[in-house]
Write a protein that binds this DNA or RNA. Structure first.
Lengths: 219, 219
DNA sequence: CCCCGCCTCTGCCGAAAGGGGGAGGCTCCC
DNA sequence: GGGAGCCTCCCCCTTTCGGCAGAGGCGGGG
């Protein structure tokens, strides 16, 4: 495919940030900032008018915030601009917009302090249909992926044996198989399953399995 | 804090890769490759001996693979080396080691074709307790996170209706409940469940649920 | 046009799971 | 000593699943 210039629009309520980004991006031979906006409404209008390849959108802006911009442009509603990939930019990695932004179709999520390198890399990634997320944010996403919200807390509800049985249930084992595995009688397995079921509020063994998968007990 | 040199060990069965990485990394003033290994056993031994700041580990290596290395070094077993952050490197973004690696504590997941910039960025991120994942892989992670746009590959095996039923199975619904929800007869639900079961290789509905949770169809 | 895949439904039967109850042995702690 | 909690096992009964076999409607593609 032809390596034409990537057209970029910057949306941020701070002029200094916009100028900084523009300096960095225009220094790249294949990138070109074609527009700027200082608020959410302007970002949407500019994106719809210019249909750039990339929109860098601050999370916190007057009017529609970065998330709303992502939703509208990346959605399939009337105002969507499918050819524009939105990269969300934020100042603080504390903010909790990460999850919704990515879920709603952001092509990246960057910290302003990430530096020019990652900014350029994020744009190139987005142009390849990929997505770069700031390392400091990725590490939080991974924690969510990994350890589950509260493994120790939630799991404490079950006795050791019950958790063991629940794990095997989540693997798709029948009571008889679990019994063979743990060297106990099938009747005892039923007792443990029923107990786990009651404790986690499930209506059947699939609910127990679902709980095990959610909490990270099983994987 | 003092910006001392970051000590790095490279584990890859291809000497060319190791040399390439070494060239890139030693060109950085604050990075230093202090060791190499050509297989999993060597990687573990070298990491335990040198206790480097960073271990770049190929996924596919003779002996223990990159995942096993991550598990052993990042775990809390006797052979763990907590001060060493493991960045997993792979050739193909097709491979399905992404989830386990990140879940088991990898401080990054890179494609060899990502280029030197991301390699260096990934190391700096890992040193800050953060994690950089290759954009092409991130985009897959996000699909799993979103779970709305299907991971077409795995889910393509099931028809739309089957996937719908599988999702409800994963929520712990009985066939009758699914029937009521989808406005079809319980018998039809049984057909779909049985079909999904056969396609995903499960022996019962819990296996279908497990598959749904694994693939992100269910959350 | 006809075949194929998907969705829909039907029936039957044995196996598995779920709900209820009871019971003995064990450890830990008051 | 006496609970309390856990693990283990047993009974009975109903509901749900799982496997099997068949069949009609409906759409797309050869």
């Amino acid at each position: 495919m032809a390596d034409v210039t990537t057209r970029i629009v910057i949306a941020d309520d701070q002029a200094a940030i916009r100028h900084g980004f523009r300096l960095v991006l225009d220094a790249q031979p294949d990138l070109c900032v074609v527009g700027e906006a200082a608020d959410g409404a302007g970002a949407l209008a500019t994106a719809r008018l210019l249909r750039p390849d990339i929109l860098l959108a601050d999370v916190r802006m007057p009017g529609p915030d970065g998330l709303e911009v992502v939703r509208q442009l990346a959605g399939d509603g009337p105002g969507a601009v499918p050819e524009t990939r939105v990269i969300v930019v934020t100042t603080f990695d504390l903010d909790e917009y990460v999850y919704p932004a990515l879920r709603d179709g952001a092509a990246g999520y960057l910290l302003k302090r990430s530096g020019p390198t990652l900014l350029v890399e994020a744009i190139r990634a987005a142009m390849s249909g990929e997505a770069l997320v700031s390392p400091s944010i990725t590490v939080r996403l991974l924690r969510g992926l990994t350890a589950s919200p509260a493994p120790a807390t939630a799991r404490a509800a079950l006795t050791e044996r019950e958790a063991e049985v629940a794990g095997l249930v989540a693997q798709g084992c029948t009571n008889a198989e679990i019994a063979a595995e743990l060297l106990i009688s099938p009747g005892t397995v039923k007792t443990h399953v029923a107990s786990a079921q009651r404790k986690v509020g499930a209506r059947n063994r699939v609910g127990v399995a679902a709980w095990a998968w959610r909490t990270g007990l099983a994987r």
